[in-house]
């Protein structure tokens, strides 16, 4: 047996690992909560968060120091969520025109939509079912604007769209929610009284 030259070193990934660990420790909780709000259930939130951090690991060099890491990972989560819904059948992705607010989703679509299956202990049924009727982009804008309290500019960065688009999506989403939430509440109460 002849002696082999020394084995090739494992690709240097200590920095990459440290980057990932730091990212998970610092932003894991916020990322998970955003994913949960977007998806509406814990199983999907886990998958989204997991996949997002794997992307962060792979693409760690493309992160630009001095920019917001949270905006970066929120963008990844938002895109993953949109892609996931696109894959599932029966989910409406087109934005509804302004005048067509009370459009009902087909029954199968509601069953596939995680928001529709949300637990009551986390989120009231009426808010959940109203959110389920928004497009994924409208839902993301509402959550980022009203719950995460991000500025228009930050939302535009996360969603890779213009501030004008953010404004119009938020405007439409709020209009829909203000019609849908009371309606869903009324239905909820009716169900409660008959049960």
């Amino acid at each position: 047996m002849t002696a082999r030259p020394s084995r090739p070193a494992e690709p240097p990934s200590d920095d990459q690992n440290a980057f990932l660990e730091h990212a998970m420790a610092t932003y894991g909780r916020q990322t998970y909560n955003y994913a949960y709000r977007l998806a509406g259930n814990e199983a999907d939130a886990r998958d989204l968060t997991q996949e997002a951090f794997i992307r962060v690991y792979r693409a760690w060099r493309s992160f630009q120091p001095g920019t917001s890491f949270l905006s970066w990972i929120y963008r990844i989560v938002t895109n993953l969520h949109r892609d996931e819904l696109r894959k599932r059948k029966g989910v409406i992705l087109q934005e509804l025109p302004d005048d067509n607010v009370a459009r009902e989703l087909p029954r199968e679509a509601r069953q596939h939509d995680p928001i529709a299956q949300i637990h009551e202990r986390q989120l009231s049924e009426s808010v959940a079912s109203a959110l389920a009727r928004l497009t994924p982009d409208q839902r993301a804008v509402v959550l980022l604007a009203d719950v995460e309290e991000r500025s228009y500019q930050e939302i535009a960065d996360i969603m890779a769209c213009s501030i004008g688009t953010v404004r119009s999506r938020l405007h439409r989403a709020r209009l829909q929610l203000r019609k849908m939430i009371p309606r869903a509440r009324a239905a909820e109460q009716q169900q409660g009284s008959t049960a």
Binding site: L20, G28, R29, Y32, R46, Q50, F53, Q122, V127, D146
Partner: peptide, 19 residues
């Protein structure tokens, strides 16, 4: 909306482990 989402969840340890 804020009230509906007021609960902050912890990221499950299983997520980090899977990553």
């Amino acid at each position: 909306l804020r009230a509906a989402f007021s609960q902050e969840l912890d990221m499950p340890a299983s997520v980090m482990a899977s990553v």
